[in-house]
Design a protein around this nucleic acid. Sequence first.
RNA 1: GCCGCGUUCGUCUAGGGGUUAAGGACGCCGCCCUUUCACGGCGGUAACACGGGUUCAAAUCCCGUACGCGGUACCA
Length: 491
Amino acid sequence: MNPVRVRFAPSPTGYLHIGGLRTALYNYLFARKHDGTVILRIEDTDQKRFVDDAEEDIIASLQWAGIEYDEGPGRDGGVGPYRQSERSDIYSEIAEKLVESGHAYIAFDTEEELAGMRERFATEENPNPRYGSSTREHMQNSFSLSEEDVSSRLASAHPHVIRLNVTPGETVSFTDLIRGDIAFATENVDDQILMKSDGHPTYHLANIVDDHMMGVSHVIRGEEWLPSTPKHILLYEALGWDPPKLAHLPLILSPTGGKLSKRSSERAGIPVFVNEYRSAGYESGALINFLALLGWNPGDERELFSMEGLIETFSLERVGQSGVQFDLNKLQWYNEQYLRQRSAQSIATDVKPLLAESGIEPSDEYLERVVEVMKERISIPSDLVEAMYFFQDPTSYDDKTKKKRWKEDSSDLILLFSEKLDPLEPFDATTIEIALRELAEEREAGAGRIIHSVRLATSGVGFGPGLFDLLEVLGKETTIRRLRAAAEILG
RNA sequence: GCCGCGUUCGUCUAGGGGUUAAGGACGCCGCCCUUUCACGGCGGUAACACGGGUUCAAAUCCCGUACGCGGUACCA
């Protein structure tokens, strides 16, 4: 049995996409499960769309997510380099070979000529004619041009591309590990460009050359590659190479059903880039857990998995075949689960800079106590920034709560309560609660009644941590000050 | 248009011919706990796209239709 070697092969045309992270994750899980190797390969053959700091972002995002790679830029495994831009010679050589063996051919068509062809051959039934057996005779290439013409153009450095020579009337089939047997008629496969006129290979050539030379055993990639797979199979055959095993993952869809594009996701409030989740404060473990279960399931009813647990349980057979919609709610739930496992201290460290942005700079001790009472009721650390009442006296009181909870005698009650608190020592949740219940009894008022008024008076809102915890954290002085102020303002 | 892939609760899914009045999770709703907010516990809502076949029996196999998604670049 050949060793398992997988690759994650992003293109540095943008920051790491959430879907890309999932692809990387599934590759990683599969490799670790089978004691295999993970290769990171940078597919930078498109110089026009190259983004300067994309590679850096991809690597940083993977690391944040806990997905390690064994070979890649900076980690030589003996089959590098791992950036396609550094492998140009290899591709040209292979392309040359393909031309010699007749599996590929040279074409000189300009962009205008290609556009003209599409216009000329477009019909209602076929609005997108392809460059292939039915049209290639009408174009500028080594099929239509004389040998002398071709060589003289080549000699004068005439811009040209190399195209795959697809023979019509055949069937290309392969077995997908997730979808089973898939077949394409070669009539529907176009004469794909393999080498662009700028001397760079296209993805199609580069990926099969690299997968072969890097000893990749399993190609696990997004479903958007399924339609171009026959081209890849044809190339493997032409070169006499065994294709790797193939697995095409279902795509992540936006909650409305379409592709999770930048636009659609923004409308749905879903970040597309991994670095956005990171800076928003999501737990990487939660994101990974969520993504793993988005399109895959363990076959039992477990929901919470560590990376180790995922590795142990993962299998491609349990990956679904249909597109999956991104559910921010569920991610949030996962994040809550992970957040609660963390110490107040470590969460406080994360929240600190967020508060500083609003000019709030509490002491570490105070912030930690805030986190302790809030930990169970936030989804993400930044939720704490919403609870400004921990750091500032309320400047307004929620109208709905006021209407519902603020009664005739409320201000009397909270003033009496503040008097009861004054001598309290120590000032903690237990003593506060006793004081409040005493007052309730004395005044024959329901404790709930006082609680609600006090909450509104001290926080300005109708929800938050347990009231006695809240007051303890705020401290005696602040509590009394706020009670008095509220009695005055709310009347 | 053509090619390919898909279709079980709103969402992620289990189930792959008979013990399924279709199970779990998120969400939503209710109850309990709390004379407070949550957490938690308990319960509820809610799905086999449609039409034909095959079979004693179909969510499960086959065909068709509809719908969705992807592809149809000198992008990846």
